[in-house]
Amino acid sequence: MRDRHLKYLLVLPAVIVVFATAIWPLVESLRLSFYEGRLSRPAFPQSFLGVENYTWAFLEEPAFWNSVWVTATYTFWTVLLTTLLALGLALLLAPGGRLRVTVQSLLIIPFAMSPALIGVSFRFMFNPEFGLFDAFFGIVFPPLATISWLSDPTLAFWVCIMADVWGWIPFLTLVLIGGLASIPRDTIEAAQVDGASGWRVLKDVTLPQLVPVLAVVLILKAIFSLKTFDQVYMLTNGGPGTATQTLSHYVYFNGLKYSQIGYSAAVAWLMVIPMIFLTYAYAKFVFQKK
């Protein structure tokens, strides 16, 4: 067979799979978002509602706005903290040597841990009766030991952020170590010879050259933060109350617990919109490389 036919034939199965498993549900979700869709009733979906599901979310649902706020602040803090800490760790580990390489390979371990399990692990550590943290504070600063971390809305939110940051630092660190390694050594050495102190080399030469990788890292982390579900589900299940209810969790709750498929689809689609921008930015970086 000629290459010019073969090349399309080779991608065809993949395109079919991607369409069937990702594009179709995306479009179908959009369609459902315009309907009254209650699973409990027969003849699904029911009446066409137009944009009513969307206006309902915007105008009638404080819980929706709560999730938007939770997701936005959660994304802001996790992106900021993870990136900064990962950058610090990457700078510490990048020079190589036995200790640093060992720690680098340890980084892969938390990263391979399922987010759900990270949620469980942190719930365990923050357990008010026999959690690690209470034991720790019991020794270091007893007044903190009696705190019921996951029952307090603010503290629960920050525990979720801690778990997220903990789970993502290893990956971002590895990415940034890769980015640092791709900076030509001689630019750094040139700066040293030119008279720059360690700090100046970092500020004037290393970081500016790391900007593209940092941008990729920020976008990627933002995307995954916006989608957060697993950890929060296992750690706080959105609670106490709705203090840690992210948008994904909100959609899950309305769709599955209350069987409001149409409304859930509308909210889910509202999540897609920021993703489009982030994906666009991300794709630009990917293709710029080529």
Binding site: P184, D186, T187, E189, A190, A191, V193, D194, G195, A196, R200, D204, V205, P208, Q209, V211
Partner: peptide
Amino acid sequence: IAMVFQNYGLYPHMTIYDNIAYPLKV
């Protein structure tokens, strides 16, 4: 000292002016 590197070691994010001025600035 001043050094010229095999791959030049120019700062890719700076203009030529800033590259040359860097040893003075710093």
